[in-house]
Computed example of a mutant assay.
Amino acid sequence: MSKPNIHVAIAILLHQNKVLVGWRGAEQHQGNKHEFPGGKVEANETPVEACRREVYEEVGVGLKDWHAFDVICHEYDDVVVNLHLFQAAVPAELLNEIQQPWTWYSRAELLNLNFPKANFRILQRLYWPTQIKISEHLNDLEQLKPQQLLYWRVEHQAADVETLEQLAPELAANLIINITAWQQLTLPMQKNVAAVHLKQHQLMALKRGDLPVGLRFIAACHDLVAMQHAQNIGCDAMILSPVLATATHPDVVPLGWALFQEYAQQVDIPVFGLGGMQAELLPEAQSHHAYGIAGIRFI
């Protein structure tokens, strides 16, 4: 006998680096576990319509701007669940309308919560290590620390793409590459990399709906307009630079921590500080609303 096959709309609600989470009652399927807002897609509605409806009914806020986040099919012992995930930011003026017992958790805290197995891929995508090492040397992947990703910043040639195709999946899972190289990879390897990088001019050429669903994108930004655009088209994170003065770009005026914080507080996805960074500055960066830091020589 075939298992029941159900479609569920799930909302990833964001505010200032936090994600909204609830608790699934014991009487529900996969009960006594944490959950994201959502529910079954009814016969007369699309998944995004179901997501909007469920968030209004369960959480108490009505949101219009949704990004398609992922589609996940997971087979349990008793049922096949198709999760249609959508992402939206909750503005500050609606925070007081959120009903109990929904709670905001940091992305790191999500890893310690008890979610159903079908949500594992969601948690992997929402969580970011706090340091991004920028290097021209791909073999730096093998020396990364647990809280680091590597952005391989080179003008990729055909030979580089061939090298990427041979990369072990466990190494690719810690690698960020620019979209120009990513587009040349086979589909399996495209899915293996940790994130796809967008330079600011590449970012600004994209519009809502252009980003492939189910993949993680991180954008390089130098101003607030680019940062807001990155969030509006569905990017997962951004690198804002330069924060401090650097020897490599002495003619560029740095943002400074005060302006960095002012910008970072106006978006709801992780912001990494770049420019003059070193590992010891991570606590200071986070005190100014950075999720983490990125650097070349000192990380």
Rank of each mutant, 00 (worst) to 15 (best):
K3L: 15
H7Y: 01
A9E: 03
A9S: 10
A9C: 13
I10F: 03
A11K: 09
N17Q: 09
K18W: 02
K18Y: 04
V19E: 12
V21N: 07
V21E: 07
G22T: 07
G22R: 11
G25W: 00
N32G: 02
N32M: 06
K33L: 04
F36L: 15
V41T: 02
V41N: 02
A43H: 06
V48D: 03
R52M: 14
R52A: 15
R52S: 15
E57N: 12
E57A: 08
V59P: 12
V61R: 04
G62N: 13
K64P: 00
D65R: 07
W66P: 11
W66I: 14
W66M: 11
A68H: 08
D70N: 05
D70C: 01
I72Q: 04
C73G: 01
E75P: 05
V80C: 02
L83S: 05
L83R: 03
L83Y: 08
E93T: 03
L95I: 14
I98A: 13
T103L: 10
S106W: 13
N112C: 01
A118T: 08
N119G: 06
Y127R: 14
P129W: 08
T130A: 04
Q143I: 13
L149N: 07
W152S: 09
V154F: 00
H156E: 12
D160S: 08
T163F: 05
L167A: 15
A168I: 05
A168K: 11
E170P: 04
A173C: 02
I177Q: 10
I179V: 15
Q183C: 05
Q183M: 10
Q183L: 12
Q184H: 07
Q190H: 01
K191F: 06
A194N: 04
A194H: 02
A195C: 06
A195W: 10
H197I: 14
K199T: 11
L203S: 00
L203N: 00
L206M: 08
L206Q: 11
G209D: 11
P212M: 15
L215C: 05
L224Q: 14
Q228S: 12
H229Q: 14
C235Y: 07
I239R: 00
I239K: 00
V252W: 07
V253S: 15
Q261D: 11
Q266G: 01
V267W: 06
V267F: 07
D268A: 10
I269T: 09
F272A: 05
L281N: 13
H288D: 01
H288M: 00
H288K: 04
H288P: 02
H289A: 12
Y291W: 12
